[in-house]
């Protein structure tokens, strides 16, 4: 993000707080947090998106409240307090989804309520919101939540395309497509997640190798130029 845009949107620090969770410290792919919903509900892209939005809401709301109350909460009972705060927002989300779409509610099932046990939410409340002012904490939480949503949709999208031949319910391959059923079954979750992580690991190694090669080349160039000068 260029300087001018970041200063337009918000003060740089807040903007950095926001983008941190999106990619650089992505909760799923980098920190490997909140694996239960990541693997359980990513059968279709739609389910993944709704789960991501629900988690983002819970994360942002609880981080805001935790940050607001961070000076009032005694240290000894802070975890219990955080859990009660999170559970309250999860209950709100649970009833809201039930009211908005019963189909979605049945598809996600108990996993909506399990957001309360998602290590991502408690982890961010404890590690970040408890020591940051409300605005920054909320921005960071929203960024983290969107990063979480993004990775969920990436996993869910692949599983839906391979396992059902569709994306967000829109068929892609015509009627002769033979669905790869394993991908929408539990093992598919493990395999797709492993595939994404493998891809990132290969890319990271490649860019690292390129950087190493560049530095070696630069050193060589320096050496030869030095040698030329010496001659």
């Amino acid at each position: 993000m260029s300087e001018s845009v970041s200063s337009l949107m918000a003060p740089p620090s807040t903007w950095e707080e926001f983008t941190e969770g999106l990619w650089k410290r992505n909760p799923v792919f980098v920190m490997v947090l909140g694996m239960c919903p990541t693997l359980a509900v990513t059968v279709t892209a739609m389910n993944s998106l709704s789960m991501g939005i629900a988690t983002t809401f819970v994360l942002a709301a609880s981080c805001f409240l935790v940050s607001l109350m961070r000076k009032m909460i005694p240290k000894e009972v802070r975890i219990a307090t955080y859990i009660v705060i999170i559970a309250t927002f999860v209950t709100v989300t649970d009833y809201a989804i039930q009211a908005i779409s019963l189909d979605l509610y049945e598809a996600l099932g108990a996993y909506i309520q399990l957001i309360v046990a998602n290590c991502l939410v408690l982890g961010r409340a404890e590690a970040h919101a408890a020591r940051t002012p409300p605005v920054e904490a909320t921005m960071n939480a929203i960024g983290m939540g969107l990063g979480f949503t993004l990775s969920l949709v990436m996993i869910g999208g692949v599983r839906e395309i391979l396992g059902a031949g569709a994306f967000f319910g829109i068929p892609l391959f015509g009627e002769h497509f033979q669905p790869w059923v394993v991908m929408v079954l539990p093992p598919g979750g493990f395999f797709v997640m492993a595939g994404w992580l493998l891809l990132f690991s290969i890319l990271r190694r490649r860019s690292q190798m390129k950087a190493d090669a560049a530095s070696v080349e630069a050193a060589d160039a320096l050496k030869t130029s030095g040698a030329c000068h010496g001659a």
């Binding site: 539990p186 598919g188 493990f190 395999f191 992580l197 493998l198 690991s201 290969i202």
Partner: peptide
């Protein structure tokens, strides 16, 4: 490239 979490996830997938 496969070591670490990737390997564990693949093994878990096969078990599953």
């Amino acid at each position: 490239a496969v070591q670490g979490t990737v390997l564990v996830l693949m093994l878990a997938g096969v078990l599953s």
